[in-house]
Design a protein around this nucleic acid. Sequence first.
DNA 1: TAAAATTTTGTAATCGATTACTTAATTTTT
DNA 2: AAAAATTAAGTAATCGATTACAAAATTTTA
Lengths: 338, 338
Amino acid sequence: MANLGIKDIAALANVSPATVSRVFSAPDMVSKKTLNKVKKVIDEVGYRPNRMGASLRTRKSGNIVAIIPDITNPVNAGIIRAIEQGAQSAGYSVLLGDTQGLEEREQHYADLVSHGQADGILLFCSRIPFKTDPNKSLLEQLPPMVNGNERIDSDEVVQVAVDNVAAAKSAIDYLISLGHKRIAAITGPDDIASSNERLEGYQLALKEAGIELDSALQLEGDYVVESGMDCASQLLLLPQRPTAIFCFNDDMAIGVMKFLQKQGFVVPDDISVMGFDDINYAKYVTPSLTTVHQPLNEIGSTCIELLLKQLKGQVVEPGRRYLPFELKLRGSTGKAPK
Amino acid sequence: MANLGIKDIAALANVSPATVSRVFSAPDMVSKKTLNKVKKVIDEVGYRPNRMGASLRTRKSGNIVAIIPDITNPVNAGIIRAIEQGAQSAGYSVLLGDTQGLEEREQHYADLVSHGQADGILLFCSRIPFKTDPNKSLLEQLPPMVNGNERIDSDEVVQVAVDNVAAAKSAIDYLISLGHKRIAAITGPDDIASSNERLEGYQLALKEAGIELDSALQLEGDYVVESGMDCASQLLLLPQRPTAIFCFNDDMAIGVMKFLQKQGFVVPDDISVMGFDDINYAKYVTPSLTTVHQPLNEIGSTCIELLLKQLKGQVVEPGRRYLPFELKLRGSTGKAPK
DNA sequence: TAAAATTTTGTAATCGATTACTTAATTTTT
DNA sequence: AAAAATTAAGTAATCGATTACAAAATTTTA
């Protein structure tokens, strides 16, 4: 069964191709009688309009591409799920661009737009994957795009995220309120904007509380469990150990706890541990992990909403939009030991 | 800057559109001299060939669609990552079809193929999302497709998975070897084929060991942590408690452990707990979780490989391909108490 | 009921590439 | 150096829809 095209349907129903097209795109422009006639033919032969044909003419692919560093990261997966949902109900499909953090791949996926294979970009990385002309304003060079969860250093980009500075600060404020003074931070890689923002919040909170910064308490991790373990072991070797460790994601916090426990420390009695993200398993480790909750669903749905707006031709004010974080106080943090 | 098309490039370079086309698709069919001439124009004006135009003509979209019940499930995410990798390096893009388990959505995504928006399907569900004509053979009605990780009841479909029967059986064999006789199973929803297969393996192992099946020890869960907790509480109410609990995924096993511990039981001294999947966090819960490892990367890469083969026009023998599972013996299982 | 207004349908150009086929240019053979 | 063989380039049809515009049919108005 060679696939039938709009012209075949038109012939079978004794109408013009234009009419068949209108049956789909503007059914109330065609009379009841012909509408039924055409519809009948359509489902008799099982006709499906070819999207490539339409896309070529309309210059809309109906796809958006989501560029993310790693889909196995539960934070990203949660966001993507919400995006997929929103896109689907607006008639869009989502192209998954898992980059493994490689710039080359970020560009590859961004290029889908210039090839007409996608109409817009949801970007979860901290660099702009285009060669841009520094003479012109960014705004007029970018395709419809929303930057989510990460930070791009430009106020001409539409951005959606949690206020990482404020979130980290409020995490540290909480630890300080428990009496902690020696508070370590295990950061993410230093080319990740959100990690740097969290670091800023950490330092801000300590300064405000009049606690001196100690660079020995600031370690760079890479967001995986093992790296939490490594950093924890370094911290334990310090002449003056921290009484609390704030990790910039939950995975590292889990690694820290695991390592401390292996060494015979009791969390939180000896050392408090705090994470960031509030992944599902944070509740179920032992002790349950105190952490900063990120509203993944809301992040995802806001991103897609703002992108869809742009795709409809509406103007979206560039700049950052902050979504509310929430401290989840659980079992891994407690009063500072004296 | 209105976007330039192949004709514009041809005009600028003083060649025919055919030649420009060949610069991309068959560069060694064009002479060095013209090749350079055309290439120069191409990157002077930043020309990007429009994929819709090409797709329309070639009837290949360059997309494949991955239909999965839930991207936030780490098992699915791991598989998808491998798929994305393989697809990308073969020049394909992946459309993400997260269905939330809804048949309607499965169909929606499968339809992308009949609309020419995707060339093939990677299906991780246990039903075929097409209306099929029972008179003809399935084989000739299906588009290029691979069914992964789940089971479809037809030997005309290309399938890739772990042998769930054997995997579950060997899990139970192991528990039996530790002296357990009262072994509970917490299954997945009963419309999930893989769950039913695991159940089969469970029952098979018990029978072979001459242990009588006890329907009170077989509870249906739904693969989330809370459901593990619920089922655990039911099992504890039994007059004769199990000494080991085999959960059909790790999340439920984590829930079971958490609940048992809350009730003051010691895992594994009082009750052993075993999971299935070997998600990343299985290693990091306390005690670490004994489970059945699924080779996510290999599942994903095998799926995409078999699909790409079909897309290249090669014939792929339908039927199941089993990938090796592995028992991960960790801290949550131990000798049966006497 | 004829004219005007409105609704419905049709015609044909168009989107941007690919490719079978033809023609032109170049190289090889004799 | 002419003929044959090979390589390079061009011509024009084609993929399947959409849509501006024109024409026909229908309804409303006077």
